[in-house]
Design a protein around this nucleic acid. Structure first.
Lengths: 333, 333
DNA sequence: CAATAAAATGGTTACGTAACCATTTTGAGT
DNA sequence: ACTCAAAATGGTTACGTAACCATTTTATTG
């Protein structure tokens, strides 16, 4: 592999001069500059960013740990994060969080001496949070947060949970099934808390047999669908803790011959783009901004990287209801 | 930042011994091993992967240049690529190709001395291909290829184009609009060639006013939709060169009050997962395999990285029609 | 117990780049 | 033409890790 030492020898100058040609060309005489550039072209020399990182103690790299892309929420946030970071001179190492190797993922990220970490993989109680803090690397969590309540960007999940449930209850539904994810995750915990508060406010009891916790995989969602089919009193509404879950439940219900919302109402949370598609038209709750949580988080993180002073970031965006076509008043027969 | 030299000094051994503890612990006496590990824990030492890369002349990193994630095809391939690579000890630097900064993207990738490059951004005629070859870095293109016909994984685009058009023609449609992308891209060129061949085989003339080339953005697709609405003889079928285009055109048509397929048939190509959703049910053409092109490409690339001998990879997967619910026989009134 | 071989540990250098300091060259002023 | 300051270029070292070679320690064998 060609190095700047090779270029120097070929051009008849010092390695220092080659480095100056690339980095501070104004400090190099024109004839010398041309001679070195010709050598660079001739030898097809490309500087080594890893060696540079060693010297300058920065990598211009950010590590992203996203949720899985079968959730369109993460499709949108991943796009925003990668594009914004690239536009600001950062490379992005992407990882999709998987519980079975998250430790290896974190280890790999720390070894890479990244300049920042943006993640949506943290649990309410997670020992990694302390390690993140001790590492000294600027980091931010999006769509999730640690119980310490630091360094996060999120929507108001409790408010979202409340609005969605309150809306269904206001339509007359009381046989509502909750389909969510693990309550060790702040997103689901917050939305479930809101769900409970809405029921309490409306004086309606929550029936535990109608609460389904899943790992949000298609497989477990299908099992949940089958369980709901077996209920003595079938639900009249599905409260899905995310739009991804809602869209997947729609698939199961429509495939089974149900009409949405005539036979069953379905609501989600997140307000993902695909939910606005004319053949889906998902009623949902989400933030009003055109900027998604990933965009907000990466902009905040890059500020943190540049400014080196780390005020504690705590951003919680308000939400609102987006009433579309997958919900209607409970049919009375 | 704590280095192995600091650990060595703290533990009272040499830096060589610290390196051995981490890499070949079997060559270190147990008491020495324990002493060094205690120092590592105490100092919270994390090895520097960049320095290691300098020594070992490998980075365990692969660069991915994907298409944009508003195309679900790239959602699926990005997932597969990142997950498979991580499982095989590689990190992935992700870029989403944008014409306006593709040169910077390539430059950044070369500087990072990645071990392999997997890309879906190449044009039929693209000077970057020669640079890729000269770099000596193993690389593979997926879903697209260069005119040199080397180092690619693709579906048979001409066959896909033919099958989709032939199918629409067999349903009696002859007012078919093609909505595709730039023909400088092998994917669209191949599919269009197949489209033309089907028309020729069926003895039907292609009307150029019904051929729409776009950059596949929602904006230009909407403009195309408006243009089609203005046609004297409106189309009875939309042949979308990708499922993403098809799903977007469905959105426009349904929002405008049309029923799919009663009022207009729509077909796509790629067979993306969301196309099987019960409220979309897209008729499409795609590969039969459970393994998507991204999965196939990354497995092939990692083989190339490990084996250092580079037989010229040329993989073209056969396709078939998936008849679902967005197409029906042309209505005769 | 001594010699020798194996095991364990240490020292030096290189990987490529750039920061820092030194030296040489060039140009301006008297 | 000489002197001095500025500009241009060069030399050395460090960043952190590991490969390679050297030295020391330990264990085995006669």
């Amino acid at each position: 592999m060609v190095s700047s030492k090779d270029v120097a020898k070929y051009a008849g100058v010092s390695q220092t001069t080659v480095s100056r040609v690339l980095n501070t060309p104004e400090r190099v005489k024109e004839p010398t500059y041309k001679k070195v550039m010709a050598a660079i072209e001739e030898l097809n020399y490309i500087p080594d960013a890893n060696a540079r990182s060693l010297v300058q103690q920065k990598t211009d790299t950010i590590a992203l740990i996203s949720g899985p892309l079968y959730n369109p929420f993460f499709v949108e946030t991943t796009s925003s994060i990668v594009n914004y970071a690239n536009e600001n001179g950062f490379k992005i190492n992407v990882h999709f969080s998987k519980n079975e190797n998250i430790t290896d993922t974190y280890h790999s990220i720390f070894e890479n001496k990244v300049d920042g970490i943006i993640l949506s993989s943290i649990l309410l109680e997670d020992p990694i949070f302390e390690k993140l803090e001790k590492s000294g690397i600027p980091f931010i969590t999006y769509n999730r947060k640690h119980e310490s309540n630091k360094n996060f960007v999120e929507m108001n999940n409790e408010q979202a949970g409340f609005l969605a449930a309150d809306y269904l209850l206001s339509l007359g539904h009381d046989k509502i099934c909750w389909v969510g994810g693990p309550l060790e995750i702040s997103t689901f915990k917050g939305r479930y808390d809101g769900f409970l508060r809405a029921f309490q406010k409306n004086g309606v009891a929550v029936e535990q047999e109608r609460v389904f916790l899943t790992d949000t995989s298609k497989k477990q969602l299908h099992e949940t669908f089958l369980k709901m089919e077996m209920l003595e009193e079938k639900p009249t509404a599905i409260y899905a803790a995310t739009d991804a879950i809602a869209i997947q439940m729609m698939d199961f219900y429509i495939s089974a011959g149900y009409r949405v919302p005539e036979d069953i109402s379905i609501i989600g949370i997140d307000n993902v783009e695909i939910g606005q598609h004319a053949s889906i038209n998902l009623t949902t709750v989400g933030i009003s901004s055109s900027m998604n949580l990933g965009q907000l988080a990466i902009e905040t993180l890059i500020d943190m990287i540049h400014e080196k002073n780390k005020p504690c970031i705590q951003i919680t965006k308000a939400v609102r209801l987006f009433e579309r076509k997958t919900t209607m008043s409970r049919r009375r027969v």
